[in-house]
Design a protein around this nucleic acid. Structure first.
Length: 742
RNA sequence: GCCACCGUAGCUCAGUGGUAGAGCACUCCCUUGGUAAGGGAGAGGUCAAGGGUUCAAGUCCCUUUGGUGGCUCCA
């Protein structure tokens, strides 16, 4: 005799078990019609789910017209749409396509599938697939769930010959996979997300559930734990959007699958709106704007992922750098400069080599050594082995070593033919550690804060490179704070206040904060449990003080300490990590760093790595999108453009230009013999904050007619002197004194 | 690195086997016009590179290279 509790607290009792649909009907016919599924004690179930005991329920419904769909409704609909798309693909491409895994995502859904040799799916098929999807939706077939015993289910799947579904079923039943032999234990290292794939009907139960899109054994069906919308017609509009490759279980040594992306919305209008928004967003793409506004250039002759900053882009970058430098000065940082390379030995000490060798540029080997290796017929692979060998030897030497150098640099070792070399630095910390270590320190001098806009190089996989946001050479606004353990909380706090200042000034509000904590079950971490507790507490407290929401992520700490990361989304929804603050208990040991404490004994400093922008490249990329290229005046490559009405006021224009330049305003003069309308249009396209239109009237009064970017009406004429004063104050304060808008 | 798609003038893009095109930008000329493109002329190309098929290739095939979207990775 179930009694159900509704979200508003009201209860309803039934004298026999009821389905979700019956619950909805008991409340109202309209609700029953709109219902897609039912949440039973927080878990989403089909409307056909039978409730036989007391539970809390909530119905998931189609949104009312002109109302946004709930996240639950979208997820449900998209999961169902994944089935429809899979059926359509098998209809269009062939039944030989084997389905693996098809969950909903934030913006749609995907289905991973194996496309056998001889079959192909490409965007040329999209029209046919979309047409078939529309047909299936139009047929309004019911999603029919049925359960069979796990043993029967498994043999059914085996007879169908789809090893991926067999694997899913075995996984759901808690059995070891009979088909997947990969190293990783689960998809993407975590449990299967709710959505597709199999699940037992009840926890610990012994059945597998299938969903037929229509009638079992007559229509298309799929092993799936559900839930689904009642019928295909409840999916408003769905399309396939793109293709990508993926790996079975995310394991690159395993089968390569095709991931087909799609999305679905309750109505065609919403789908159209979504597509339109995507198109609009792509206009804000920093790669598009960067080209249009001539901010940076990537040249294939220079190399992939290597940024050439053009004069205009360099101004933006330099202004940001000046801004942060000024803040650093206020906070007691000292600036250092270090070279772009260092000996391999250094990176063995720091632990960057060879552990991370796959993500670094190949070592630079000294000329003589290279010649001898080449003469002896040494292959590249052999050379790499020797390069690594010397590092390992040095590592051993370093742990027990005194200050004495045990291996001569830059030459082939006579005994075992090992090679010395240099590496393009992947990080700045080793150099900074060496600076700290180069002179004695008292606890009275601590913390020592070494800052550098340090350029580092990393061998990112070619497919990962992306405009300014993922590159192979980038400049970190890096600093290392060498402090006593007691100073850690205050220093973390200081780092975050810096990030806060920067984000506030730039008006960046749309970011999330991750606090990476240690995995309580792991022993991979260095440093005492007590230190970790304190540092983690300090990170959490600092994050709280930011006043934005943040997530605690156990297991996401680096092995050497906890960290705080700032993550922002780009225009197409991809997340990029920007700033980071990381506590490090390891570096002091690795580099044998010390300071003299009040007890007159040597102590290890704790090191805090921090980079509030992350990298100048990525930050500028994100910033371009944030402003859509319309930088605030202080950041704009060109702050003012003087537009003479005609050649007759060209001389006055020159005078205005000279006065602006005299006070350091970045201004230009449009000397073209276009009409004023054309000059205004061009300046507007280039997102120039201020246009000064100067004609005979202005020249007579020593005035300028001001037009501010983003302001409908022009600001009218004002004395030149007044404008110069106002814009200087706008630049100085970084506030829109004159009212420029993005 | 992997999968799919793409690479034509400085930029945005047409061009489905038969003599390389448009708009914008650029140069010159006319126009001297008060707030989102006045008019005309000119110049600009090894159609990403290399190989192949064909009487004939920007177009079809292969390789390389670069880009885009994902996957994987991310100190």
């Amino acid at each position: 005799m179930p009694t159900i509790t509704l979200p508003d607290g009201k209860t309803k009792s039934f004298d026999k078990p009821v389905t979700g649909l019956e619950v909805a009907q008991s409340i109202g016919a309209g609700l029953a019609k709109a219902a897609l599924a039912i949440k039973v004690d927080g878990e989403t179930k089909d409307l056909g789910f039978v409730i036989d005991h007391d539970v809390k329920v909530a119905l998931i419904t189609m949104p009312k017209p002109n109302q946004p769909a709930s996240a639950d409704a979208l997820t449900l609909m998209r999961h169902s749409a994944a089935h429809v798309m899979a059926e359509a693909i098998q209809d269009v491409i062939g039944k030989e396509v084997q389905l693996a895994y098809g969950p909903p995502t934030d913006t749609g859904f995907f289905y991973d599938m194996y496309v056998p040799e001889g079959k192909k799916i490409s965007s040329d098929h999209f029209d046919a697939i979309n047409k078939r999807i529309a047909e299936i939706i139009n047929e309004n077939r019911e999603f029919t769930r049925y359960e069979i015993s796990a043993t029967d289910g498994l043999s059914k799947l085996k007879s169908e010959g789809n090893k991926y579904k067999v694997d899913n079923a075995e996984r759901a039943m808690g059995l070891p996979s009979s088909v997947y032999k990969g190293a990783k234990s689960a998809f993407s290292g975590t449990a299967l997300p709710g959505g597709d794939s199999a699940d037992t009907a009840r926890k610990g139960g012994a059945t597998l559930s299938f969903y037929a899109t229509g009638a079992p054994n007559a229509n298309w069906e799929d092993l799936c734990r559900g839930p689904h919308v009642p019928s295909t017609g409840r999916i408003g509009a769905a399309i396939v959007t793109s293709l990508a490759s993926s790996y079975w279980h995310g394991d690159e040594n395993s089968d390569r699958l095709i991931r087909v992306y799609g999305t679905a919305f309750p109505t065609q209008a919403e789908l159209d709106e979504y597509l339109k928004q995507k198109e609009e967003a792509s206009k804000r793409d920093h790669r598009v704007i960067g080209k249009h506004l001539r901010l940076f250039h990537i040249d294939e002759d220079v190399g992939q992922g290597l940024i050439l900053w053009t004069p205009r882009g360099s101004i933006v970058r330099k202004e940001l750098q000046n801004f942060i430098s000024a803040e650093l000065k206020k906070q007691g940082y000292t600036e250092v400069f270090t070279p772009h390379i260092g000996r391999l030995e250094l990176y063995k000490t720091s632990g960057h080599f060879p552990y991370y060798k796959d993500s670094q540029f190949a070592p630079i080997v000294e000329r003589q050594a290279l010649a001898e290796l080449s003469a002896s017929g040494c292959t590249c692979a052999e050379m790499m082995n020797r390069v690594e060998g010397v590092s390992e030897r040095l590592a051993k030497g370093i742990n027990e070593r005194t200050k004495a150098q045990t291996i001569a640099p830059d030459r082939i070792m006579a005994d075992d033919k090992l090679v010395e070399g240099f590496m393009l630095k992947p990080m700045n910390c080793p150099h900074h550690a060496k600076i700290f270590g180069s002179s004695p320190h008292s606890y009275r001098d601590m913390p020592v804060r070494l800052a550098e806009f340090g350029t580092v190089y990393r061998w990112e996989q070619s497919g990962e490179l992306n405009g300014l946001t993922r590159v192979r050479g980038f400049t970190q606004d890096d600093a290392h704070l060498f402090c006593t353990e007691d100073q850690v909380p205050a220093e973390i706090q200081g780092c975050l206040s810096l990030v806060k200042i920067i984000f506030n000034v730039l008006g960046m509000k749309d970011y999330r904060v991750r606090v990476g904590l240690r995995d309580p079950d792991s022993t991979k971490y260095t440093g005492s449990a007590e230190s970790w507790d304190k540092a983690e507490a300090a990170c959490i407290a600092a994050a709280e003080s930011l006043g934005v929401t943040f997530s605690k992520e156990p297991g996401e700490a680096a092995f050497y300490g906890p960290k705080i990361d700032f993550v922002v989304k780009d225009v197409i929804g991809r997340e990029w990590q920007l700033g980071t603050v990381q506590v490090d208990y390891q570096m002091g040991n690795r580099f044998d760093l010390s300071y003299i404490g009040p007890d007159n004994k040597a102590h290890r400093p704790v090191v805090i790595h921090r980079a509030p922008f992350g990298s100048m490249e990525r930050f500028c990329g994100v910033l371009i999108e944030h402003f859509a290229g319309a930088f605030p005046t202080w950041l704009s490559p060109e702050q003012v453009r003087v537009l003479p009405i005609s050649d007759k006021t060209l001389d006055y224009g020159r005078k205005v230009l000279a006065e602006l330049q005299a006070v350091g305003v970045r201004a230009t003069l449009d000397e073209s013999n276009e009409r004023i309308q054309a000059k205004v249009k061009v300046a507007a396209d280039e997102k120039i904050p201020y246009m000064l239109i100067v004609g005979p009237r202005d020249a007579e009064n020593n005035a300028v007619s001001v037009r501010a970017r983003g302001v409908e009406k022009d600001l009218g004429a004002m004395p030149l002197e007044a404008f110069v004063k106002a814009i200087a104050s706008e630049i100085e304060s970084k506030n829109a004194v004159l009212g420029v808008k993005p």
